[in-house]
Write a protein that binds this DNA or RNA. Structure first.
Lengths: 154, 154
DNA sequence: TAACCTTGAGCAATATTATGTCGATAATTG
DNA sequence: CAATTATCGACATAATATTGCTCAAGGTTA
């Protein structure tokens, strides 16, 4: 739809930053063989156009005591606008939910939930089950991360 | 297992950085009401202990022409060490796979795959189906992101 | 109580960064 | 081919950031 707007230099900047979000402009410039001034111009443009939505630190969940990641498939009772809006608002307020998508297939939503332990998960499940618009959930516990938060293929 | 190692000041630093990974040390210090020197000491410690695993720019997939996100459940033919190792090595090399976990439940793996369009997905599926250790895959297309890459609950 | 350990505040020196300007060059378009 | 536009490299500057050092305060332990 729009990737024609970005030349290979833009992509190199984006790729450098998705691998190390704290690179300074001069470091990026050096890495992609460009001088700092045009590099900064491009970077600012990419930020303004919201191609870069933000920056974040990648934290180690286990070391923070968040040892449990669960993928939860949710089916709603009805797909009325109210049900959908209510469910999504609830999901957005739940801090344990770090990712949520509507999906094709037999489930309506796929959520990624992060909690400390089984007890924390139990508490969260009770919250979700109290939502009247939820018909059914199926939990799949992440046993091991094979690949996490890898860079996008640019 | 280990969150006793972090006091509330550490958590404030981590929380600030997972929301804005480019904050300077002085900005973090101001945000959490601490002077820059101890703030930097803590930050460096958190980096050295790999509580902070790195930093990354959050890119807008749609604007980059990566309009399709697919969650793929994979079942293996056998769970021999060779099958597992071979499959995981293949997954790690596929750039379209941005997340991969082994999971409980009927599937062995849950993958998140990012491609430009259906054609790109078709190409990827053929790659995966050529792996002899793969018995079956089920694709669930992400229709809409309700929540993406939200901060961890600290 | 005294010694000790941890952690914070303040300050200074250094290094680094972001950012604007300007002329040159390359690409594009009519 | 000429004119226009876009983009680059180089340089200068001003603002910021990082980092080390020292001293003080608070809490802990023997």
């Amino acid at each position: 739809m729009s990737q024609e707007k970005f030349d290979s230099t833009d992509l190199k900047i984006l790729d450098a930053l998705q691998r190390d979000g704290r690179l300074s402009n001069v470091d990026i410039a050096e890495q992609i063989n460009l001088s700092p001034s045009p590099c900064l111009r491009r970077l600012r443009r990419l930020e303004e156009e919201a191609v870069i939505e933000g920056y974040k630190a990648r934290l180690n969940r286990n070391r923070l005591g968040l040892a449990m990641t669960v993928f939860v498939q949710v089916k709603l009772r009805s797909h009325s606008a109210d049900s959908v809006a209510g469910f999504e608002a609830a999901v957005q307020q739940m801090e344990a939910v770090v990712n949520a998508h509507t999906v094709s297939g037999s489930a309506d939503y796929l959520l990624e939930v992060v909690v400390a332990d089984l007890e924390g998960y139990d508490l969260w499940v009770r919250q979700i089950q109290q939502l009247s618009m939820v018909r059914e959930i199926e939990s799949n516990f992440a046993l091991r991360a094979v690949k996490a938060d890898a860079p996008l293929p640019l």
